[in-house]
Amino acid sequence: MDAIHIVIEMRLGTGSNISFIEMPIVVSYRNRLKQLMKKSNLYNYYRFSTIGNIRMNTETRIEHLKDKLLSDVFLEGRGLGNEIPFWIFDYPPEDEHLVRHSIKRIEEILKSNSINFIEIDLYELCLEIIDSKIKFEKVIEFEKKRGSDELLKKLRIILKQDTVKKVITRRLSVCGNVEVVFLTGIGKAWPMIRSHSILNNLQPVWGNTPLLAFYPGVYNNTELNLFGKFEDGNYYRAFRIINEEEA
């Protein structure tokens, strides 16, 4: 596939300076992440940003996470009352590559323990939905004629919340007896879709299956802050899965 680029207007910090980042929306599968991280300023943003509220080392928190995911308390949703089993593992965005590698290792551990899981990459999901609605040649033509801002608006219409919800629930039903759901690609999917909107829309149709969202930013049990820079909306129905006091 050819690359479709969209210029994202990002306000960094609280100042008035505006930085324009060229982010590939659609590229070949093999090179997509490489181009995204290395051809734009977002690579440096992921790699060098700092988040003050996450004190425990990410590697240490991942080790705690591995143990928790195998526990009956997590798998059976014990101690949550009537709350939906939505969990968030937040982490500094500069640890993105570490977390991606760790997710693959965690998935191997789940397989070895005969725990059925599914990983839903929001970015890949967005590409699939766009591909099913409009030919990529048309998308490129639209961007040339109307500009990147209008393209982003168009993509957000295609990726409306109900559509994303239906695709996710359909995928779960096809997979059968799923015991754990991983939600990844949240940072890559921004700004096409926002994680708190997805979680809000899944709540009414969700059952007892634990869902764990890997979130590059900060979650304090009430607010989501993407990359530690952008307010992603209030959200209080999920639990921060590994807290510092658990170490």
Rank of each mutant, 00 (worst) to 15 (best):
F74Q: 06
F74V: 09
L75K: 07
E76V: 04
G77F: 00
G77N: 01
L80I: 11
G81D: 11
G81I: 10
I84D: 01
I84C: 02
P85M: 00
P85L: 00
F86G: 03
W87Y: 09
W87F: 09
I88F: 05
F89K: 00
F89S: 04
D90N: 04
Y91E: 09
P92L: 05
P92G: 05
P93Q: 04
D95S: 06
H97T: 15
H97A: 15
L98N: 10
V99E: 03
R100D: 15
R100A: 15
H101Q: 14
S102G: 12
I103V: 14
K104Q: 14
K104C: 12
R105G: 14
I106G: 01
E107R: 08
E108Y: 12
I109L: 09
I109E: 06
L110W: 09
K111Y: 15
S112V: 15
S112Q: 15
N113K: 13
S114H: 08
I115T: 08
I115L: 06
F117D: 08
I118R: 02
I118A: 01
E119Y: 12
E119P: 14
E119T: 15
Y123F: 10
E124T: 13
L125V: 06
L125S: 01
C126M: 13
I130W: 02
S132I: 05
S132T: 07
S132M: 05
K133A: 09
K133G: 06
F136R: 07
F136Q: 07
E137I: 12
E143L: 10
K144Y: 06
R146W: 12
R146H: 11
R146K: 12
S148C: 12
S148N: 12
D149M: 07
D149H: 06
E150Y: 12
L152M: 14
L152K: 11
L152G: 10
L155H: 00
R156D: 08
R156S: 09
L159T: 03
K160W: 11
K160G: 13
Q161E: 13
Q161T: 14
Q161I: 13
D162A: 08
D162S: 09
V164G: 03
K166L: 13
K166S: 13
V167G: 07
V167S: 08
T169C: 03
L172D: 07
S173G: 10
G176A: 07
G176K: 04
G176N: 06
E179C: 00
E179A: 00
E179S: 00
V181E: 00
F182W: 05
L183R: 01
I186S: 05
G187P: 11
K188S: 13
K188E: 15
A189G: 03
A189V: 04
A189C: 00
W190I: 15
P191N: 12
P191K: 09
M192V: 06
M192G: 01
M192L: 07
I193H: 01
I193S: 03
R194M: 13
R194L: 10
H196P: 15
L199W: 08
N200W: 05
N201K: 07
P204F: 03
G207W: 00
N208M: 02
N208D: 03
N208T: 00
